[in-house]
Amino acid sequence: MKIVYVYDALCGWCYGFSPVITQFQEKYKDSLSFEVISGGMITGGRIGPIGEVASYISWAYKGVEKATGVKFGSEFLNKTLKNGDAIFTSVPTAIALSVFKNLDPNNNIRFASALQRAIYYDGIEPENLDAYGQIALKFGLDAKSFVLKMKDPLYKKLAEDDFKKSAELNVSGYPTIFIKINGTYQKIGSGYIPFSELKSNYLSIKKRMK
């Protein structure tokens, strides 16, 4: 059985859900494998300066904080968001995840969480490739090599494959969590849910399999 976590690094609710999915993996890592798929929330015509959506984010983040307990950092709120000129795009983060999955697939949940913290707490700009190298460094990878791989068209193709997979699974919002059993996908979570609910949904399916 495999947990398939469809998220987007720029999804605020996914940022709020990061501690939940991380806790879930830690509890069940010995009996389940885990895969993260980038949904591609902001691609194509949606890509643009963060200033275009700043008015929405400036109040929406408070709801995420209240519901999930995560905190958005001052570097994001008072610099990236207020400056408004950083390009908001899901593509570089998806490419970074594709590179990481190739190098260290067992830690892709943790890396996805680290990407979100870097954006929404530390305030990195999504197109800052060197910042992704520094995140990779924290996982014991070579930063320079990681950035070079991000420029390889192969990993952009793999990121686009993730976007297609998300569409094939009919994911309409993030986060969405599936359990894959014998080639079939069953949804066990959609939108932010607490750990207790995710655990209950998983155990319910596991019980039916016995």
Results as ranks from 00 to 15, higher is better:
Phe100Met: 00
Ala60Pro: 02
Asp104Met: 12
Leu81Thr: 04
Ser58Gln: 08
Tyr120Leu: 08
Asn102Leu: 10
Ser113Leu: 02
Asp85Ala: 11
Gly63Lys: 02
Asp104Val: 15
Leu81Trp: 04
Phe111Ala: 00
Phe100Thr: 08
Ser113Cys: 15
Leu77Ile: 00
Phe72Leu: 04
Thr93Ala: 15
Ala54Leu: 08
Arg117Met: 15
Ser55Trp: 03
Val53Gly: 05
Ala67Trp: 02
Ala114Arg: 03
Asn107Gln: 13
Asn106Ser: 14
Val99Ala: 06
Ala60Thr: 06
Gly63Asp: 06
Leu115Phe: 00
Phe76Thr: 03
Ser90Lys: 07
Asp122Asn: 09
Trp59His: 14
Asn102Val: 13
Ala67Asn: 04
Ala114Gln: 10
Thr93Asn: 12
Ser113Asp: 13
Ile87Leu: 14
Trp59Pro: 07
Phe76His: 01
Ile87Trp: 08
Ser74Pro: 10
Phe100Ile: 09
Lys71Ala: 10
Phe88Glu: 08
Tyr121Ser: 10
Gly69His: 10
Val91Met: 11
Thr93Pro: 10
Ala96Leu: 06
Phe76Asp: 01
Lys71Arg: 05
Asn102Tyr: 12
Arg110Cys: 11
Gly69Ser: 08
Asn83Gln: 09
Phe88Ala: 11
Thr80Trp: 00
Asn106Trp: 05
Ala86Asn: 09
Trp59Gln: 15
Ala114Asn: 00
Lys62His: 09
Asn102Arg: 13
Ile119Asn: 09
Gly123Thr: 04
Arg117Gly: 14
Ala112Pro: 02
Thr80Gly: 02
Ala112His: 10
Gly123Ser: 06
Val64Ala: 07
Thr89His: 03
Leu77Glu: 07
Asn108Phe: 02
Ile95Val: 15
Ala67Ser: 04
Asn102Gln: 12
Ser58Phe: 00
Val99Met: 03
Thr89Tyr: 02
Gln116Ala: 04
Val70Tyr: 06
Gly73Leu: 05
Ala54Asn: 02
Phe111Gly: 07
Thr68Ser: 05
Lys71Ser: 11
Asn108Asp: 08
Pro105Asp: 13
Leu115Asp: 00
Glu75Met: 15
Ser98Cys: 05
Val70Met: 05
Lys79Ile: 03
Val99His: 11
Thr93Asp: 06
Gln116Gly: 05
Leu97Glu: 06
Thr89Met: 01
Asn83His: 08
Asn83Tyr: 03
Val64Ser: 04
Lys62Ser: 01
Ala60Gln: 02
Ala118Arg: 01
Ala94Thr: 10
Lys82Cys: 14
Ile87Asp: 04
Arg110Trp: 09
Gly69Tyr: 07
Val64Met: 06
Glu65Met: 01
Asn106His: 12
Ala86Leu: 00
Phe100Ser: 01
Leu81Cys: 04
Ser90Ala: 06
Ile57Val: 15
Asn108Gln: 15
Ala118Gly: 10
Lys82Pro: 13
Ala86Gln: 05
Glu65Gln: 04
Val53Gln: 09
Ser90Val: 01
Asn102Glu: 12
Ile57Phe: 05
Leu97Gly: 11
Glu75Phe: 15
Asp104Ser: 14
Tyr120Lys: 01
Phe111Tyr: 05
Ala60Lys: 00
Ala94Ile: 08
Gln116Glu: 13
Ile119Phe: 05
Leu115Arg: 04
Lys101Val: 12
Leu81Tyr: 09
Val99Ile: 12
Lys66Thr: 10
Lys101Pro: 14
Gly73Val: 01
Gly84Arg: 06
Lys101Ile: 13
Lys71His: 12
Leu115Lys: 03
Glu75Ser: 11
Val70Glu: 04
Ala86Ser: 12
Ile87Val: 07
Pro92Val: 03
